[in-house]
Simulated scan of single mutants.
Amino acid sequence: MDLNSKIYVAGHRGMVGSAIVKNLQDKGFINIVTRTSTELNLINQQQVNDFFESEKPEYVFLAAAKVGGIVANNTYRADFIYENMMIQNNVIHESYKSNVKKLLFLGSSCIYPKFAPQPLKEDYLLTGLLEETNEPYAIAKIAGIKMCDAYRQQYDCNFISVMPTNLYGNNDNYDLQNSHVLPALLRKMHEAKINNDKFVTVWGTGSPLREFLHANDMADACVYLMQNYNDKGFVNIGSGEEISIKDLAYLIKNIVGFDGKIVFDTTKPDGTPRKLTDTTRLNNLGWKYKIHLKSGIQEVYHDRFL
């Protein structure tokens, strides 16, 4: 990509999309195209066709998706598979028709089998059954990866895919009903501190291990791979490091300055015992994460709550 290349970032208002836009701007790219969902409905084939015909972007970051937590994924199963497949079908196909030079598609860690070995290697895709609660979303994302490979094979399109680990950062979701564990803990601890609560309850035993990556690192990896990776399949993007939910809770407690106790509700489920990506392929391509968890959470907490 040249600094004046026309780059379309789909989903620029989301946590990943907004981080990609910022990363590109910080690197000096000056021709970034964005559209809100009201300006361009990516589910509408004609609107996407008209957009690509008029704008003719050279590079595409496909970060747009319908996303949600476990409850939303399990409740609106039809919506999640339909809307996500329509979004990626339209953007990928129109990118082919418009001779886009390169496209990057973002997958999700739920594409891996529920009982895949740890750490998760890219080769484990489609080697077992998926987690039932978010299967429709996962199938849509797997279809997107395979679609990029199919267009690469049949039409020689340079379409690549990436698979991010658990992300946190600016523009994260802090809704306690459907947010992920890190932003939920940040909000819980902050509100407990403000209200002088004596304790905060955390679901489960605290023993599960999770990997986290700042969205700014994720964006940097996406831009790096857009310039340095041109193969089929996909690349895991993560830190390759993990922390227990218990240690994460105490880390956030110290960052927030909450003086009360942490109570683990062992009647609640723990979820998957371990979820760690194998980042060997990414590291061998020359990229490694830079933002360590403590400093990353401190930055996010200050930005969102202070």
Rank of each mutant, 00 (worst) to 15 (best):
D2R: 14
L3C: 05
I7P: 11
Y8K: 04
V9Y: 06
V9I: 15
A10T: 01
H12A: 13
G14T: 07
G14L: 15
M15C: 07
G17I: 05
G17L: 12
G17H: 08
I20A: 01
N23P: 00
K27G: 00
I30T: 08
I30C: 13
T38I: 11
I43F: 14
I43Q: 02
Q47T: 02
V48S: 03
D50Y: 10
E53R: 15
E55A: 07
E55Q: 09
A65C: 08
G69L: 13
I70A: 15
T75D: 14
F80K: 06
I81W: 09
I81R: 09
Y82N: 11
Y82V: 07
Y82G: 00
N84F: 12
M85G: 02
N90Q: 13
I92A: 15
E94R: 06
S98P: 15
S98L: 12
K101Q: 11
L103A: 06
F105N: 12
I111K: 04
I111M: 05
I111T: 03
I111H: 05
P113E: 01
K114Y: 13
F115R: 14
F115I: 08
F115G: 10
P119D: 05
P119V: 11
Y124W: 06
L125Y: 06
L126M: 06
L129G: 01
L130R: 15
E135I: 13
E135A: 14
P136H: 00
Y137G: 03
A138F: 14
I139D: 01
I139K: 09
I139T: 01
A140S: 09
A140M: 09
A140W: 08
K141Y: 02
K146M: 10
A150C: 03
A150D: 01
R152M: 11
Y155I: 04
N158V: 02
N158I: 00
N158A: 03
I160K: 08
V162T: 02
V162I: 13
L167N: 02
N170M: 07
N170A: 03
Q177Y: 14
V181N: 01
V181A: 02
R187E: 05
K188Q: 06
E191N: 12
E191S: 04
T201M: 14
V202P: 07
V202C: 03
G204T: 02
G204L: 12
S207E: 08
L209Q: 11
L209T: 03
R210Q: 07
F212H: 03
L213D: 02
H214D: 07
A219F: 14
Y224R: 07
Q227H: 09
D231S: 13
D231I: 09
F234G: 04
G238I: 04
E242Y: 13
S244D: 00
K246V: 01
L251T: 01
K253F: 12
K253M: 14
N254S: 09
I255S: 07
I255N: 08
V256R: 07
F258A: 09
I262Y: 05
I262C: 03
F264K: 04
T266E: 12
T267C: 05
K268C: 05
K268N: 03
D270N: 10
G271T: 11
P273N: 05
L276W: 12
D278E: 09
N283W: 12
I291F: 10
H292E: 15
I297N: 05
Q298V: 08
V300K: 07
H302E: 10
D303Y: 14
F305N: 03
